[in-house]
Amino acid sequence: MNILNIFLSAGPQGGGGNPTISILFFGGMILVMWLFMIRPQTKKAKLQKQFIDNLKEGDKIVTIAGIHGKVKKMNDNNTVLVEVSPGTNFTIERSAISMEYTQQQQKPADVK
């Protein structure tokens, strides 16, 4: 017999099984969801916030839209002035800066 069938099967009285086992099984499912879905997302959000807070003028960045530029000025209202070419500036939200794309762009190219 399958272990799951043993825990969730009806007992000899014909009842609905042991409610304690069902509650433990449900709690285990919630724990697995937290470990594999919620916890990694919160860690990633924390790293993204730390990355945005550590930006400074002169850093090269990539936005989530794929625009490459250099931080020209950090504004107080959660915006950044980005220079994409000499004389061309954009004002974008800090949350629009991609941590993954920026770190990929800053890695040296692999030489073969």
Rank of each mutant, 00 (worst) to 15 (best):
H68S: 06
E93R: 12
M33N: 13
Q106Y: 03
Q104P: 06
N77K: 08
I92A: 03
Q13L: 13
I52H: 11
S98F: 04
W34Y: 13
F7L: 15
G87F: 05
Q50R: 13
V80E: 01
G69N: 03
V32I: 15
A96I: 02
P40N: 02
I92M: 07
A96Q: 10
V62K: 03
G27C: 11
E57I: 14
M33D: 09
A45K: 12
W34E: 13
G69A: 04
F51A: 06
K107Y: 04
E100Q: 14
N2F: 08
V82C: 10
Q103S: 08
I38M: 09
M1W: 14
K43T: 11
G14H: 01
L35I: 08
G17M: 01
K43C: 05
G66H: 01
P86M: 07
H68G: 04
F51R: 07
V84Y: 02
P19V: 00
I38Y: 09
K46V: 10
M29I: 15
Q48A: 09
P86C: 03
T63W: 00
F7Q: 12
L35Q: 07
M99V: 00
L31Y: 10
S98A: 07
K60A: 11
D110G: 13
S9L: 07
Q13W: 08
M33I: 15
V71Q: 01
F36Y: 11
F36N: 07
W34A: 15
M74T: 00
K72A: 09
N77I: 03
I3T: 11
A10G: 10
A109H: 11
N77T: 11
L55N: 02
V84K: 06
M1R: 13
V62I: 12
Q104V: 10
A10C: 00
N77F: 02
K56S: 14
P12V: 13
E100N: 14
G14Q: 00
Q48C: 03
V32H: 06
G14Y: 02
L47K: 11
L81E: 12
P12H: 12
N75H: 04
A109R: 14
L47S: 11
I6M: 09
A109Q: 14
T102V: 07
K72L: 07
K56F: 08
Y101Q: 15
P86N: 14
I23M: 12
M1T: 12
F25R: 05
I52F: 03
K72Y: 10
G58S: 02
Q105P: 00
I97Y: 01
P108V: 08
A109I: 15
G14D: 04
G11C: 13
